[in-house]
Amino acid sequence: MAQTALPTSIDFLAPPVLCNEQGEVRTVGVEIEFVGPSAEKTVQALQEALGGRLIEVDPHSFALKDSAIGELTVELDSRFLHPGKSAGSQKGVLPKIAALFGFAASYLVPCELVTAPTPIDRLQELDRILGILRKLGAKGTQDAPFYAFGLHFNPEIPRQDAQTLAAFMKSFVLLNPWLRREVSPDRTRDLLGFADPFPADYVRMIASPDYWPDIPRFIDDYLAANPTRNRDLDLLPLLHHLDKERVRAVLPNEKINGRPTFHYRLPDARVSDPGWSIAPDWNRWVAVERLAAGREKLDMVGGTYLAFEGEDKSWANVVEQVVRS
Rank of each mutant, 00 (worst) to 15 (best):
L238I: 00
L298M: 09
W282S: 08
P209H: 01
V318G: 01
T115A: 02
R181V: 06
T261V: 14
F262G: 01
A49C: 11
G29A: 12
A63W: 11
G140V: 08
S325C: 10
A287C: 14
E21H: 08
T73V: 12
L242K: 06
E309C: 07
P7Y: 07
D299T: 08
F103H: 14
L94T: 14
Q163A: 13
K170F: 04
L46S: 00
R229W: 03
A2Q: 12
P197F: 02
E24T: 02
T141A: 04
I69W: 02
A144H: 15
G29M: 07
F172L: 04
R189C: 06
T118N: 03
L251W: 06
A316Q: 03
K135M: 12
D196G: 08
V301I: 12
D161Q: 02
F101W: 13
S61Y: 13
M205A: 12
H60K: 10
Q44F: 05
A293D: 12
Y211R: 04
L94R: 10
D161P: 05
T8W: 03
L192C: 08
A148V: 00
E33C: 04
S106H: 09
A195L: 00
V319C: 00
G140Y: 06
L13A: 15
F153N: 02
F194A: 10
L151Y: 05
D186L: 11
K255F: 09
A207V: 02
C111A: 12
A279Q: 06
L298G: 05
P260I: 07
E112L: 12
F149I: 01
A49R: 01
E245K: 13
E40H: 13
S86K: 11
E40M: 10
N253F: 13
I278W: 00
S78C: 12
G193T: 13
H263G: 04
A87H: 07
V28H: 02
P267D: 02
